[in-house]
Amino acid sequence: GATAVSEWTEYKTADGKTYYYNNRTLESTFEKPQELK
């Protein structure tokens, strides 16, 4: 079976905060997504 690849990509803001962006739902969040835990 195919492994589900996380759609979340980790980015940093200009002031160094980490956030996560989902390229399928176009959602962004500062909290670590469930799929990455």
Results as ranks from 00 to 15, higher is better:
Gly1Phe: 12
Asp15Arg: 03
Gly16Asn: 03
Ser6Val: 09
Pro33Glu: 02
Tyr21Gly: 02
Glu27Leu: 05
Phe30Ile: 06
Thr29Trp: 04
Tyr19Arg: 04
Asn23Glu: 14
Ala14Asn: 09
Glu10Val: 06
Thr9Ile: 14
Asn23Arg: 08
Gln34His: 11
Ala14Ser: 10
Thr29Asp: 02
Leu36Lys: 06
Ser6Trp: 09
Tyr21Arg: 06
Val5Leu: 14
Glu35Gly: 09
Lys32Leu: 10
Lys17Pro: 01
Ala2Phe: 09
Thr13Met: 06
Gly1Pro: 14
Lys37Ile: 15
Asp15Lys: 04
Glu27Ser: 04
Ala14Pro: 12
Leu26Pro: 01
Tyr11Phe: 12
Glu10Gly: 01
Glu27Trp: 01
Tyr19Asp: 02
Thr9Phe: 10
Leu26Asp: 10
Ser6Ala: 10
Gln34Thr: 11
Gly16Ala: 01
Ser28Ile: 15
Ala14His: 08
Phe30Glu: 08
Thr25Ile: 01
Gly16Tyr: 01
Asn22Asp: 02
Thr3Ser: 14
Glu7Cys: 07
Glu31Tyr: 05
Thr9Glu: 12
Lys12His: 10
Thr9Tyr: 08
Arg24Trp: 10
Leu36Gly: 08
Val5Tyr: 11
Lys37Ala: 15
Gln34Lys: 12
Ala4Phe: 06
Leu26Gly: 15
Asp15Pro: 00
Leu26Thr: 08
Pro33Ala: 02
Lys17Ala: 06
Phe30Asp: 07
Ala2Glu: 13
Ala14Arg: 07
Tyr19Pro: 01
Tyr11Pro: 00
Gln34Tyr: 10
Tyr21Pro: 03
Ala14Trp: 05
Leu26Ala: 12
Tyr21Gln: 08
Lys17Arg: 14
Ala2Asp: 14
Ser6Gln: 11
Val5Gly: 12
Val5Asn: 11
Glu27Ile: 07
Trp8Met: 00
Gly16Leu: 01
Ala4Tyr: 04
Glu35Asp: 10
Thr18Met: 05
Lys17Ser: 05
Thr25Gln: 01
Ser28Thr: 15
Glu10Ile: 07
Tyr11Asp: 03
Val5Gln: 13
Ser6Asp: 10
Ser28Pro: 03
Lys37Thr: 14
Glu31Asp: 11
Thr25Tyr: 02
Ala2Arg: 11
Ala4Ser: 12
Gly16Trp: 00
Thr25Met: 02
Gly1Thr: 12
Thr3Cys: 10
Asn23Pro: 07
Thr3Glu: 15
Ala2Lys: 12
Leu36Thr: 08
Glu35Val: 06
Phe30Met: 09
Lys32Ser: 04
Gln34Gly: 12
Glu35Asn: 09
